[in-house]
Nucleic acid binder design. Sequence first.
DNA 1: TGTGAATATTCGGTATTTCGAATATACTGT
DNA 2: ACAGTATATTCGAAATACCGAATATTCACA
Lengths: 118, 118
Amino acid sequence: MSDALRRFKSEIFQGLANPTRIAIVELLRDGELPAGKLIEKLGIEQANVSQHLSVLRAKQIVVSRKAGNQVFYSIRDHALIEVLDILRRYFYSQLSGAVSMLKEAARQEQKARTTTPR
Amino acid sequence: MSDALRRFKSEIFQGLANPTRIAIVELLRDGELPAGKLIEKLGIEQANVSQHLSVLRAKQIVVSRKAGNQVFYSIRDHALIEVLDILRRYFYSQLSGAVSMLKEAARQEQKARTTTPR
DNA sequence: TGTGAATATTCGGTATTTCGAATATACTGT
DNA sequence: ACAGTATATTCGAAATACCGAATATTCACA
């Protein structure tokens, strides 16, 4: 396979390599939503959501449409939904491994929190 | 969806968010290979390949099996192959967007090369 | 036990990602 | 033109990823 295709794929994966961005894509699963709705549902900083949306746009994962005051986002291609669905099945089929991975992730997160308390 | 599942997915995406690691997974597509074969086919530093393999192991994307002197790697679950296949179709269906993305990627790479010449 | 082959780990530097805070832009209604 | 709402961008700091170089580990076999 070509280098170009590999770069392309890794760009997409990178676009999805963040829990908040996954949450965004999943919120968009059933159709477009304005940025404000995403901010509300995610419950995180407006600027932060906007930055994540910018990443998703740059990687061509979502498209945006302006309507008056608002910007509506939607997933560019249904293929990406399929990808997430496959991973959900993967998650359940690999539960034991997944759990240990998640435990490790939680441990890291805990460590980060105690090292750099807010 | 749970936070845990989102973290899990983002971990997997992060594992695949690198062209070399994509290449590795694709080399393993048709069955296991020893690390040495991967190094040979990829044509990059042994240590670097080993580091990427370590990432893939940590994210539970591949599993390894020791046999004498060698370590054989294989993909942990066929679902990941499906994901790559979906993305290949996605790539071709979105060619125009993909091309502009790749051009941008190439531009960045070029910039990086001139900024930090080797 | 020693030597070589296969693979993994550690370290140091640079680049990239992530976040919050502050600020900027764009559009609507008055 | 002005005020208010919605969204985007910029900046600086901390964390993380990536690479090459050097070193360590593990195993086979003489």
